[in-house]
Structures are given as C-alpha cells and as structure tokens.
Design a protein around this nucleic acid. Structure first.
Lengths: 232, 232
DNA sequence: CGAATAATTGAGGCCTATCAAACCGCGTGG
DNA sequence: CCACGCGGTTTGATAGGCCTCAATTATTCG
C-alpha cells in the first residue's frame, strides 16, 4: 500500500537529531502537529513509527473489512494516546473528527524513555476501560441502549455514583455537540445509519432530547436518557 | 486526571533499559498465585490493588449489566496482563477458564517501578489490538463470521500474511481445545448459546470441522474456516 | 437559489433471539 | 449394571429487532 506518502507531515522539520538516552528520559521533546477536520493521521497497515497524544480535538480509530464494513473502535479526546502498536504496523486507521493538536513521539524515543512509557501505561490502562465498556455496548446492548449510552458519554458527571436517581425526571438539561455524522455514529455503535436515525427520532418523540441542529443535541431529560442506557 | 503526579515518582530509579518479559515476571517482588478452573480472581467493582500477569492457563474478563446480560471482553493467555485500572476499582471481573499460575504485583509496587510500567505498557499495547479486533467482530460480523474468527484465533500461524491462500482447500488440519462452555463462547461473541450451537452444527454439516468432544474441535479445512471469518 | 450531500421515513425481509422440547454425557445410587 | 437425574447442548418453531432497499425531506454550500 502506498499509504505512507499520504501521511501528511504538517510540521516537516526533518529527522529528529540523535540524543542520548539520558536526555530523552529527562526531557522527552515532543513535536507538535496540527490537522484539520477529516484528516487521516495514519492508515491501518502503515508502519507504526510514531505514538501520538491528543492535546486538543477529537480523533477516531477505525478498522475496515475488505468488503467495506467499518467499525469505529475508539473515540479519543484530550489527553488520550493512540498510535501504540504491539507489532510493526498500526492495526487501525486514525482520522480527525475536529481540528486537532497532537504531541508526536517517535516510537524509538518512547522505547528509550521510562517517563514516556510510564505515561503511556497509565493512559492505556484508562483507555482500556473504555474499550471494555464499548465491547459490552456492541455485544449486548439494543440499538436504543447504544444511542442512549453514546449520548450519555458526552454528558459531564454522567451516571456514575452521583446520579441523583430516577426520582426527579428533569435534572439539569444539557447540550452536546456530536462532531460525528450519522454514518460515523452508526459505525461506532455497530448499527446502520437508518437505525441511528430512527432511534434519535424516537428519543425526540419521547421528549428526551431535542435537535438544535443535526449534530447539536439538547438533552431535556438527562435522567430519562440515563435510564435508557441499560446500566440501571 | 491525577496520573501525571504519580508519574514523577517512578523516576526515583532513573532510566532503565528494556528487559525481557521473563526477567520482569521473575522480579523479586512478584508473588505467585495458583488457582483452579472456574475461580474468580476479582470482581468488577473491587478495589484495584493488584496487577496480574498470566504465566500459565487461561483467564476471561467480563462485565455484567444489572439485568444479568454478560459480555466477556477479553480472553487472556500466557504472558498477558490484567487487573490494570484507570480508576480505583476494577471495571471487569476476572475468572479462570483453566487452572492458572499468576504473577501478582501490588499496585503501588507497579506505580513505583519503571521496569514494571514499561512491561505493562508493552503488554497493553499488544492487548489493545486484540480489543480492537474484537470490537470489529462484535460490531460488524455475522454469527458465522464470529464463530469462525473465534476458532481461527486458536489456530497457530493463522491467516496473517503467510496464509497459503484459498487455493488448496485442505491445508494441514488442526485440533483445538475450547476451554469454554457454549455460554461463555456466546457471551464472548455477543450471541446466544443457541446461535453458537447452530453455527457449529452448520460448520459440521459443511465439513469444515468435526467435534471430537463438545470442547475439542478438529478443523478439517483450516482455509475453508478462514474464508468464513470475513477478513478475506 | 438550486444542486449535492446528509438525514429521515417507509416497507419488507432476513438474521438472530426467544421459548420450548429433545438429546447427550456423566456421575450417582438402587 | 442400568435406571435416574442433572447440567449442558442441540434442535425446532416462532417472533422480533435491525438491516436493506427505496423514496422523501432537510441541510449545506457554491
């Protein structure tokens, strides 16, 4: 595949100067990259030479089957890490959903730095929980539960323990911006575009949400939505 | 996130060269545990005080919904790590599928050791690829493709690049031991017990596999099975 | 303002879940 | 030794949820 050429180097400063292990360990210097919306950072199958930390914006990771089926496996937000690989090649493609700012580390730089590896370990431990949660969603939840869970993900202080309970049905309403098309949402939730659309319409009909715009949702009844996620 | 503060503590020991998994597993601090089959190592919600490395045997990680729906999110084999947590509590339950031998590390021990964190980082990077693959399976594959993928997982040197291709339909046959009940398989693949059973029967009917026993499968046509995974 | 793209809605069918019954392997005990 | 019971598995009949295909409507952008 000729993917490598396409990997755009917006900050093309050329090869990083060699440094001693000591310098790297004490002051790992990350390059910074910026990208527009809908930019592919790397493709599945590319040589895994860099690890990225998302400083700002949203990135999605996805996999494709030969017949075109797509699964979005992770939605990344500020502070999360991607581009990690067990082998020599990326197992997913990475694409921006918004303009982003990235910290970029060469793979060998990470391999040589205990600080970076420690940071990577902590991030991955946290992100792995998200993947577990998502497996539950994909394997065991209904379409309604998936969409409700997806929306609740974006409500701050969601459900956890501090959930005031199902008593008052309209705890403070909340606005959210999706930053994803229906197709991307569908590919994330393991559904079709039509099913996502139908579920959203049903939520409107029930008075749980209101659409300000196609990608801007006003949650009128947060608790009502939370009840639909399947976790209660 | 309070991860960063903790990172600094790890530097007390200075930069450390990468070591083999074997060395790390045998680090002086590591206790060893043994458990029988069907033993729960920890439950979802327990305080996350230890990190485990599987030295021998098979462990499954699963999550439950309040109504009893279960999703097995990971099947772990020798060398893999579990018990990592982003927060103070485990997000999954861990149960043995066979007798196991474990290396056990106290959480604070890992937080204080650059060597351990480096090892954890490497393992998690590899394991994350498995989770991505599984998300694709759960979100986008048919029941037949799921079961075929599940079986192929256990065939050594499976599919990768060295797949001899669809030409010869009976490349060397192979035996596999499931170590899982139909219920566990179903919960892993996001299906019901009945669907798993029906698919297995269909594979028998097509002459792709033969059942030596309920949990011992002889794959008569490896390539034929591989064709059914959806990755070709 | 109108074309192109994205989203919604509708009709129908398929795949998998559900409910139910039969089957099997296996250990127990009469 | 074999009937018995039990858990797990298989098979069958049916239903339902989501997908597919198609048409309509909404939104975006030149």
């Amino acid at each position: 595949m000729a993917y490598l050429e396409r990997t755009s180097e917006t900050m093309g400063h050329g090869p990083v100067a060699a440094r001693s292990a000591r310098e790297v360990a004490e002051a790992p210097q990350a390059r910074t990259q910026r990208h527009d919306q809908h930019h592919v950072i790397f493709y599945e199958g590319d040589a895994a030479e860099r690890i990225y930390e998302l400083q700002d914006g949203i990135v999605m990771l996805y996999k494709l089957l030969p017949d075109g089926r797509r699964q979005v496996v992770e939605i990344l937000t500020r502070g999360m890490i991607f581009g990690t690989a067990g082998g020599p090649r990326y197992d997913v493609s990475a694409e921006t959903l918004t303009p982003v700012r990235l910290a970029v580390h060469e793979r060998r730089e990470v391999d040589a730095s205990a600080v970076l590896q420690s940071h990577v370990a902590r991030c991955l431990m946290a992100q792995m929980e998200g993947l577990h949660e998502h497996a539950m969603l994909l394997g065991r939840k209904s379409a309604m539960e998936r969409v409700a869970s997806y929306f609740m993900r974006m409500v701050p202080n969601r459900g956890g323990e501090g959930c005031s309970g199902p008593a008052s049905d309209d705890c403070d309403p909340h606005n959210l911006v999706l930053n994803m098309t229906r197709q991307e949402i569908a590919d994330y939730l393991g559904l079709t575009i039509e099913t996502v659309s139908r579920v959203i319409s049903e939520l409107k009909r029930r008075g749980v949400i209101r659409l300000e715009r196609q990608d801007r949702i006003h949650v009128t009844r947060v608790c009502g939505l939370c009840q639909l996620t399947g976790i209660h």
